[in-house]
């Protein structure tokens, strides 16, 4: 329903969003995930029409593929601070964007209050209701003019942890029920993963990777993506004659990939950790963090590199234990930090 083509927004020298392409289906839930300052909020504001792009287009398919300029009733925005009008009651806040007669407005307000289960707050003022209630009212107000796309900018980050989980679920149900498409901007990977069907990973104004949450975790396109989503160990590697030399032994990798490989990425759970006599060991246990369900073991390899390994909570390690490390799965990256395709796991 909406498409961004080569969307670029620059502030002087800085390109907050550069050459961004995006296509969203009707009813689709999409998350844009990235660290703060990566340009994700700017991208959302460009789609909303709150910012004017420096280059590129935002196309709404139903408007005969015309470029949108400025906000329109087809898109609604939910702000991080909710932005409820403090001088208007809850009903009036919701009715604000509804066009039509008094009774039509009244009907729509009642409908939406029922949808978010807050009928009893109709006549209250925003400062009289809780943060979670404000959040739901903000969503109701955004839905009031019957938009087809809801844009949400870190909508849950102002709430405490428990409330966040609960509201994320509730609001997802409400939005699905209304049949709108949604773009959620967040820096929280769990939020992105649980809220949406598709995640766009963004870094320094650019699209790094698009895919399902599993795809991004299992097959990160860049070293940066590997450590932004999940934990990652980065280890140096070098091609020697016929195989790839790594801190945990020689690896059997096709030559065309191995020759390019400079860095290996291994998830903590993909290491195998066994105790070994001094002669066979390639590392020494330096830290042990026990957290109930799992145990994170810090190992210093003979090469001097330090890695984090997830171990079973049943095997207890002691500091200075000599260990032998091997990797079950690893990914190869070139000197630019890009993943070398065609080779994923051992």
């Amino acid at each position: 329903m909406i498409e961004c083509r080569n969307l670029t927004k620059s502030y002087g020298e800085l390109e907050a969003v550069s050459d961004f392409n995006l296509h969203l289906e009707e009813h689709e839930f999409l998350s844009i995930l990235g660290p703060s300052g990566c340009g994700k909020s700017t991208l959302l504001r460009l789609i909303a029409g709150l910012e004017v792009p420096s280059k590129g287009l935002v196309l709404l398919e139903e408007v005969n593929g015309k470029n949108v300029s400025g906000p329109g009733p087809d898109r609604a925005f939910v702000f991080q601070d909710f932005a409820l009008f403090p001088h208007l009651s809850i009903e009036k806040n919701i009715a604000y964007g509804v066009n039509g007669s008094r009774s039509e407005k009244q009907k729509r307000v009642e409908e939406l209050l029922k949808l978010v289960s807050l009928q009893h707050l109709a006549s209250k003022m925003p400062h009289q209701i809780s943060g979670g209630e404000q959040q739901r009212i903000a969503v109701a107000r955004a839905l009031a003019p019957r938009p087809r796309l809801i844009l949400m900018d870190e909508p849950f980050s102002n709430l405490d942890y428990k409330l966040r989980l609960q509201l994320r679920r509730e609001i997802r149900v409400i939005l699905k029920h209304e049949g709108v498409a949604t773009i959620l901007v967040t820096h929280d990977q769990v939020e992105a993963i649980t809220f949406s069907e598709r995640v766009l990973l963004m870094h320094k104004g650019k699209l790094v990777q698009a895919g399902t949450p599993e795809e991004i975790y299992q097959q990160p396109q860049t070293l940066w993506a590997s450590s932004f989503v999940g934990e990652a160990n980065h280890l140096s590697a070098e091609w020697e004659e016929t195989s790839l030399k790594s801190p945990f032994g020689f690896l059997d990798v096709p030559a065309e990939i191995g020759k390019e490989t400079r860095i290996l990425m291994v998830r903590p759970e993909d290491f195998i950790l066994v105790s070994a006599p001094d002669g066979e060991a390639n590392g020494i246990v330096k830290t042990v963090e026990f957290s109930g369900a799992a145990q994170t073991v810090g190992v210093e390899l003979k090469s001097g590199e330090k890695i984090q390994v997830s171990g079973s909570p049943h095997l207890l390690w002691n500091l200075e234990d000599p260990v032998k490390i091997t990797a079950e799965r690893y990914l190869c990256f070139n000197s630019f930090g890009d993943r070398l395709d065609g080779f994923i796991a051992k």
Binding site: P71, G72, F77, F79, A83, F85, G97, A144, P145
Partner: peptide, 8 residues
């Protein structure tokens, strides 16, 4: 901005 987004 919220007001603008609500088409005012």
């Amino acid at each position: 901005e919220a007001s603008r987004m609500l088409d005012k």
